Amino acid sequence: MQFDAQWLLLALAPVFLACIGWEAWHLARTRPDTALYSWPDTLCNAALALMHQGADKLAWLVAIPVYAWVWRHGRLTDWQPGWRAWLVLFVAQDLLYYVFHRASHRVRWLWAAHVVHHSSGRLNLSTAFRQSLMYPVAGMWLFWIPLAVIGFTPMQIVGIVLVNLAFQFFVHTQAIRKLGWLEYVFNTPSMHRVHHARNERYIDRNYAGVLAIWDRLFGSYVEEDALEPPVYGIVKPLDTYNPLKASFHEWIAMARDCARMPDWRTRLAALFAPPDWCARHDLALAPQASQAAVTENNTRGECGSREP
């Protein structure tokens, strides 16, 4: 009987829940002065996870036939089963994940989905569950099409994507400090704490999935500094534990910005430019009024954006 890779994350759910239980117990015992878990936040994360899983299952119904068509008609090579094929698949998908993740902080259409993952003011293992049901609409699945082009089957693609996401569960923790030489090779809790922080020096850094090499290679790596502990979440807090508001608040804001733009160029920019483009556009048109709006709305910080 062959295991369906689409069910991997659900199959691992008992492991994830056991790890969350251990982390909550450990942090309550060792750091009782810090509220690193709260029931409303954790339940919101769980609801978002279930919504994401449902949307993901529906998305694969569309994505898998696309991957299959590309693999049948457009693949460049065939791979024999073995460690070479697995290594190429693993490295290629991890690079594509880096591209997707970085784009998700620099393209507002993608950020509208990804902001859900960053919108909690806490970081713990349950935060890994905090995913958006809108990823399929944003187009996350499109980033894996090159894997079919280089010769990998749809099931191999689905499997490696889910393995990558399963690994990332374990980096959403404050219970593990730096890991020595592993920091140079793999995404680690320390590295990922930086990614979730809203401190100015940490925003839009450390996009790694599994391998740390891409951030170091492409200049997006920042080390966690003990003198500047990460402050988590988005600069303008979401201030709700409603999973529907968490899922759609940025889509609503983006639609409003698009609707108020005067022409098709600026409407497209409101959708696909960096997330802080509208704030900078307003500032250029009316400096004093727009500066007040930027301060009030925390647009730049909320979008997790900075100029490259």
Rank of each mutant, 00 (worst) to 15 (best):
R256D: 02
A18N: 01
R256M: 07
G209V: 12
L283F: 09
V99P: 00
L217A: 14
M191F: 14
D215A: 10
R280P: 00
N45D: 15
Y202E: 05
A166N: 03
Y67P: 07
V158K: 05
F186K: 05
W111G: 07
Q156F: 01
R122D: 04
T34G: 00
F169Y: 14
W39S: 13
H52D: 14
D78L: 15
R265T: 00
M261E: 12
R75H: 08
R122Y: 05
A269I: 01
I64K: 15
A13Y: 10
R130F: 07
I145F: 02
C278Q: 13
G21Q: 12
Q291E: 14
G151L: 03
L43E: 01
Y232E: 09
A212I: 13
N45I: 02
R198A: 07
R216M: 08
D56S: 15
N242A: 02
H249A: 05
L27D: 13
F167Y: 15
S38V: 04
P287F: 03
W25V: 03
W69V: 04
A226D: 15
L110E: 03
L211I: 10
E223M: 08
E296D: 07
F90Y: 09
A92M: 09
D4M: 08
G159Y: 04
Q93R: 04
A175P: 06
D225H: 14
L12Y: 04
F169A: 05
L95I: 08
V222C: 12
Y202F: 11
Q80F: 05
E228Q: 14
Q2K: 06
T173E: 10
W277D: 01
Q53C: 01
P189T: 02
A112R: 03
H26K: 13
Q2R: 06
N187H: 10
L17P: 01
